[in-house]
């Protein structure tokens, strides 16, 4: 068993109930530094609720959640958790539609978040270079002055991944990153996430099994709020419980 202190994310016996319905039931998950974990599972398995709990949107009723082996996340709010170095991409791409792609990234850029620091912020050359670099990575450089609202669904997903990169987090929580993407884009996204996972921890929730195969990472299958199976994709998809509850015969 791994020591708590060596983990990036440590969930132990986490439970949360909404009106008596146990959305998460004694969930225990460990993510190591610079490791990718793919989470699969049927609808209602608690995948998004798990992300809500980690990022401070929902308070767990019970259990322990540690970040970086030390910080207790259950006592912090969303902004504090984001500033610790946990970035989240939402299931539905959520970008600031009435603002330009450049401004979206500038706001996400890891900089002091205080009111007056933000009011008197002036971008220096390093910031400009960094944003340009991210724009190249997510292939939106030519559209930097367009409004985020004008992007296609897949491009919005990429912009949101770019915003995650700009935040420079230690842990990325990525909820269904390839929904609405073409097959080619899906392949590219898998490459990009694997690249990111070389230096950071990444948790990906996804339904697209071929995408999960491309990620080539450890897989956890959730069902009814707890872990059903863990291991490589082959092991998990060979598990009879997983076949019964999720993959179907």
């Amino acid at each position: 068993m791994t020591e708590k202190i060596d983990t990036m994310l440590y969930l132990d016996g986490v439970s949360v109930a909404f009106d008596g319905f146990k959305a998460i039931n004694k969930l225990s998950i460990i993510v190591h530094p610079a490791e990718m974990l793919a989470i699969i599972g049927p609808n209602g398995a608690g995948k998004t609720t798990m992300m809500d709990i980690i990022t401070g949107k929902t308070r767990p009723d019970d259990g322990e959640i540690l970040f970086n082996g030390r910080t207790d996340l259950t006592q912090l709010d969303e902004a504090a958790i984001a500033n610790l170095g946990i970035g989240r991409k939402f299931q539905k791409p959520t970008v600031f539609e009435s603002q330009t792609i450049w401004d979206n990234l500038e706001m996400a850029l890891r900089k002091p978040r205080g009111i007056f620091a933000t009011l008197f912020y002036a971008s220096d050359q390093a910031d400009v270079d960094h944003i340009t670099e991210i724009l190249e990575t997510v292939r939106l450089l030519s559209r930097k002055d367009d409004l985020a609202a004008d992007l296609s669904h897949g491009q919005k997903q990429w912009l949101e991944i770019g915003m995650l990169l700009a935040q420079d987090p230690k842990l990325l929580l990525v909820d269904e990153p390839v929904a609405g993407m073409t097959d080619a884009e899906t392949v590219e996204t898998a490459k990009l996430l694997k690249q990111i996972a070389k230096t950071r921890s990444v948790v990906v929730v996804e339904h697209d099994m071929s995408f999960v195969r491309d990620l080539d990472s450890r897989v956890t299958c959730l069902a009814e709020g707890s872990v059903l199976a863990e291991g490589s994709l082959e092991q998990v998809s060979a598990n009879p419980h997983v076949i019964e509850r999720y993959l179907g015969r």
Binding site: K57, F96, S98, M107
Partner: peptide
Amino acid sequence: NSKLGKVMIAVRDAESRTRFLGYRV
């Protein structure tokens, strides 16, 4: 016109998203 102004518009358009970026809405 400052970055804070952009964050204000972000709060107007998608408040909870702004929070997950680490801003104290």
